[in-house]
Structure formats: structure tokens, C-alpha cells
Design a binder for these strands. Structure first.
Lengths: 114, 114
DNA sequence: TGTAATATGTAGAAGCGCAAAGTATCCAAC
DNA sequence: GTTGGATACTTTGCGCTTCTACATATTACA
């Protein structure tokens, strides 16, 4: 079973915000950490990750500074703004409610079909 | 708490398939049932619902017949095809895995920086 | 007669994720 | 010394889905 990623629209932002909330990180590390914590279920391609980061930065949820990584390389370290922290809480709450709702619907036993 | 709908991409299809699996229903009833079972968390606009139904029908997951409702009105009653039943199981499984993965990520305590 | 609820449908716009490119650095192997 | 892999960031364009808004028709009820 190849681990499919295919994140539903909107979910990526939430996961990124959450990851950044754990401390300043650069984009590449965000992708790795998501994959790691999710046990390989979530695998974010760079073509999804970086545009998402720019999107979040444009909206004022993230801010960034260029710094050196532990390995001595230039990287853009993101951190949450106050606005971003609020957004994270909002989205996390929305996700929770949605997950519960979908759970409820999927739980319904299937009646006699046709 | 205003009940926001805004379903992530792909989720709507899953919910529709699940609802139809419980027995032949027409589009309007699907929307109502989703709203009811999800306790108003899921509210599908008609402009989302009907295109989704056509999409699922085109793909061979749903089939439909015109019948009379209990109230004596013409309505298109959808039922799952065999292919649709398989698809439902696949999507439900994907959702489960994703929900677990997102749960894992959201669970991580903040400030776990290295 | 008018309005609310039922029931289906289309068109246009906007957003998002992804594939596929490209750029550049560091390090180890050969 | 150069090849290759891992790291790190960026951009463009495609395809898909959802939403807003509108259009249409019937039934029920005041």
C-alpha cells in the first residue's frame, strides 16, 4: 500500500500553521516534520509546500527571517504572527468539528440497499 | 457559533456516497440528511450538491431514476452502483487515515522545539 | 394571489494542491 | 575535481472542486 498524500484543500494550511507553532522552522523542515509525525501518511510535495508558505505569509499569518541552519546553510525561518496564532486556533477548531461531523455520518449503519 | 460549512475538497463526494448508500434518495433529501446527521455542521449549498451528483453519476458511482416522492413530486432518486460501493469504501478508508494523521499532528504539544 | 418549501439545474469565479521545471549549496565518494 | 545525492527555495501552469448567484418548476398553505 503506497502511502497516498493528497491533502484536501485547506488542510495543508492548518498543518503548516501547527508545525510552525512548535517553533521557528524553515520550509524544508516543515515538510519533513509533517511526514514524520504523521507516520508517512502526509507527504507534502515542494510544489504544494512553498506556495502555501507564501500564501500564509502574504496573509500575515507567518513571518520569516533568513538565518543559518545547523548545517550552516541559508534558510528562511518562519514563525507565527499573532494573527497566525488566532488563525491556527480557528482552523483547528473547524477541523475538529468537521472531523466529528464526518465521523458521525460515516458511523451511520447502512440500511437495506435497494 | 455560526455553523460554517466549507467542506474540504473530496469530502463532499464521500459524504454523498455514504448517504446514498443508506438507500435510494433524491438530491434535496441528501442535503437535508447531511445537515441533520451532522448536527448542522455540514450544510451543502445546492450549487455544490447538484454538480457533485452529476460528477458522481458521470463517473459511474451513482445511477438515478425519476420517481415520485412521498409528497407526490418528481424527483431523481440516486442509488449506488457496484463501482460506487467500492469507491465509498476506498474514500472512507482514506478519510480515516487522514483524520488520524491530522489528529496526530494537532495533538503535538506546542513548544516541542529542538 | 402570493409566498414558502420542495426540487433540479447552470454559469462564472475563485481557490487550492500538484507536477514539473529551475537555481543553488554542501558533502562524500570516486 | 567532478560527479551525485541531500538539502533548500522558487515559479509557472494545469486541473479540479467548491461557492455564489441565478434560473426554473411544482406543491402547499394562508
Amino acid at each position: 500500500m503506497p502511502p497516498k498524500s493528497d491533502l484536501p484543500q485547506g488542510t495543508l494550511d492548518l498543518l503548516i500553521l501547527k508545525t510552525v507553532a512548535m517553533g521557528p522552522v524553515h520550509g524544508y523542515a516543515i515538510g519533513q516534520r509533517l511526514q514524520q509525525v504523521s507516520r508517512d501518511v502526509v507527504q507534502v510535495p515542494q510544489g504544494s509546500l512553498y506556495p502555501a508558505l507564501h500564501r500564509l505569509e502574504t496573509r500575515g499569518y507567518l513571518a520569516a527571517d533568513w538565518k543559518l541552519t545547523e548545517t550552516g546553510r541559508e534558510a528562511k525561518f518562519y514563525h507565527l504572527t499573532r494573527k497566525g496564532r488566532v488563525q491556527l486556533e480557528t482552523e483547528a477548531e473547524s477541523w475538529k468539528r468537521l472531523a466529528e461531523a464526518v465521523g458521525l455520518i460515516l458511523q451511520v449503519p447502512e440500511g437495506a440497499a435497494e
